[in-house]
Design a binder for these strands. Structure first.
Length: 423
DNA sequence: TCTGGGGTCCTAGGACCC
DNA sequence: TCTGGGGTCCTAGGACCC
C-alpha cells in the first residue's frame, strides 16, 4: 500500500455515533435531568413519548440488541422492548452539538463541508506537513471530541468523499478510524451487501437483486450498459460508486446554496374538516415565510402536498408571476392549490414547499400585486423580529387563537445545514 | 398496527414556440 | 388536409439522503 505522503488527495468523513441519542444523553446528564446514561440502556430518540406514536430516529446500542431498527414505528419497537425509553427529538440542541464539533474540526483544515447535522467531510490534503499523518490526526480528533464534547465519532479516510463515507459508515462502529483506499476496495468494500452502498435504497436494492446483484463487488463488475439500461443515470452513478469512482470537492457550507424552503406536519388524527386544514396551512406558511425572509430570499414556486390516510400522496405546484416572501401570499396560494387538490378524503399530512429562490435585493412590484403588499411585507418583518425576541408564540394570528396549533409550525432553526442528497 | 421532517435530484409528459 | 423536429418551460411523481 502507498505511503500517505504519496496520496494526491486525503479526505476524512466524520460521522457521529448514534448522534441524537448521544446528544440527548449528554445534555440530560449535564443538566441533572437524569442520572441514567441513555446510551447504556435500551433507548431511542424519535416520535412523541406521550402518544407513543412516530418512528425511531436513533437507537442506543442496547436497543439495537432488541432488534430495534431505525425508521420503524414506536409501536413495533415497544413490542420488541416494552421498557424502551423514548426521548422526544430536540433539533435546536443537535444544532448546538453539531456546531461545537465543527469548531474543533476547523482547527484541522480550512476545507470543511457539513453534510448533515451529524456528518462532516474534511479535506486533509496538504495538511500532513503541518499536522502529521492522517491516522494519528484522525485518532486525535476522535479523542478530542470525546474528551471535550463527550460523544464518539467514526472517521473514514480515503482519496474521495464517497470512499471516506463508506469507510466510516460500514467498517465497524463506534469510535473507530477506518481507511479505505482505492487499492483496498476489493478486499474491504466489495464484499459488503449492496444495500450498504450510498444511494442504493428501498427501491433500487430490489431491482439490483433481480439482476442477481447482492454485493457491491457484483455491481462493480457488472457491465455498465446492462445497469444503464434498467436504472438509467442513477444506475451509472451507483455503478461508479461501487467502483470507488467519485470526484467532487469538499465544498464549504452548503446552506448558502439552498434551493428551497418547506415545512410539513403530520396530523395526529385524520382531519376531515376543511377549516382545520386551512389552519395548518396558515401555520406552515408562517414558518416558511419567516425562514424565507431570514434567508434573504423570495420564492417563485409554491407547492403543496397532501398525504391521505392510506399514505398515498398528491402534489400540486404553481409558478408565480412575481416572486414573493410574504406569509400572506404564500398562504393564499397554498390555499388555492389545496382546494384544487384535496379529494375530501381524510388527511394524514400536509406540506408546503417553496422553491425557485431569488435574492430579495431587487424586488420587483407589478400592477397586479395586491394593493397594500408593501405594508403587508413590512408587517411580516416586524412580526419576525418580535418572534425572534419573545418567542414563536408571542404573536399569533387571530384565526389560530382558538385552535391547538402553534403560531408557527415547522423547523425554525437558523442556519440548519442542508443535506445534499448527492455527495 | 402503523409509517417524521427536512431536503435534492431525475424523469416523463404536455404545452408551446420556431 | 394534415401535421416534422428540436428546443424550452412547467408540472407531477418518484427515488434517495440524514
Amino acid at each position: 500500500m502507498k505511503h500517505w505522503s504519496e496520496r494526491e488527495k486525503i479526505i476524512f468523513h466524520i460521522d457521529c455515533n448514534s448522534a441524537y441519542l448521544s446528544w440527548e444523553s449528554i445534555y440530560r446528564l449535564s443538566k441533572g435531568i437524569t442520572t441514567i446514561d441513555y446510551r447504556t440502556v435500551p433507548a431511542i430518540v424519535g416520535g412523541d413519548p406521550k402518544t407513543r406514536r412516530g418512528i425511531v430516529l436513533t437507537k442506543s446500542i442496547p436497543a439495537k440488541k432488541y432488534g430495534i431498527q431505525t425508521g420503524e414505528t414506536l409501536h413495533k419497537a415497544l413490542q420488541k422492548c416494552p421498557h424502551l425509553v423514548i426521548l422526544k427529538p430536540n433539533y435546536g440542541l443537535y444544532m448546538m452539538c453539531s456546531n461545537a464539533m465543527m469548531e474543533i474540526l476547523e482547527e484541522y483544515s480550512p476545507k470543511i463541508q457539513r453534510f448533515s447535522v451529524d456528518e462532516v467531510f474534511l479535506d486533509f490534503t496538504g495538511m500532513t506537513d503541518l499536522l502529521g499523518d492522517p491516522i494519528t490526526v484522525a485518532n486525535k480528533i476522535r479523542e478530542r471530541i470525546n474528551d471535550e464534547l463527550g460523544f464518539t465519532v467514526n472517521i473514514g479516510i480515503s482519496s474521495n468523499k464517497l470512499l471516506a463515507k463508506m469507510a466510516s459508515d460500514n467498517l465497524g462502529k463506534p469510535n473507530k478510524t477506518h481507511e479505505l483506499w482505492p487499492e483496498q476496495i476489493e478486499e474491504k468494500f466489495w464484499p459488503l451487501p449492496i444495500e450498504d452502498l450510498f444511494m442504493v435504497g428501498r427501491a433500487t436494492a430490489p431491482k439490483l437483486h433481480k439482476l442477481g446483484i447482492r454485493t457491491i463487488g457484483q455491481l462493480a463488475q457488472t457491465d455498465i450498459n446492462h445497469i444503464k439500461y434498467t436504472l438509467k443515470s442513477h444506475g451509472v452513478m451507483i455503478w461508479q460508486y461501487a467502483n470507488g469512482i467519485e470526484d467532487s470537492t469538499v465544498r464549504k457550507s452548503n446552506y448558502v446554496t439552498m434551493k428551497g424552503v418547506g415545512n410539513g406536519t403530520t396530523i395526529a388524527y385524520d382531519i376531515d374538516r376543511i377549516k382545520e386544514a386551512y389552519y395548518y396551512l396558515l401555520s406552515l406558511s408562517e414558518s416558511i415565510g419567516m425562514r424565507l425572509r431570514a434567508s434573504g430570499n423570495m420564492c417563485s414556486v409554491v407547492s403543496i402536498s397532501i398525504r391521505y390516510s392510506d399514505m398515498s400522496n398528491k402534489q400540486h405546484q404553481r409558478k408565480l408571476f412575481t416572486p414573493t416572501d410574504t406569509t400572506d401570499n404564500i398562504y393564499r396560494i397554498a390555499l388555492e392549490l389545496f382546494d384544487a387538490t384535496w379529494s375530501g378524503e381524510p388527511l394524514r399530512q400536509l406540506r408546503i414547499r417553496t422553491s425557485g429562490l431569488v435574492p430579495n435585493t431587487h424586488r420587483q412590484t407589478t400592477l397586479f400585486d395586491r394593493v397594500n403588499s408593501e405594508k403587508v411585507r413590512n408587517l411580516d418583518f416586524v412580526v419576525d423580529d418580535i418572534r425572534k425576541r419573545f418567542g414563536k408564540n408571542s404573536i399569533i394570528r387571530g384565526t389560530l387563537v382558538d385552535t391547538e396549533l402553534s403560531a408557527v409550525t415547522g423547523g425554525v432553526v437558523d442556519e440548519y445545514p442542508m443535506m445534499t442528497s448527492l455527495i
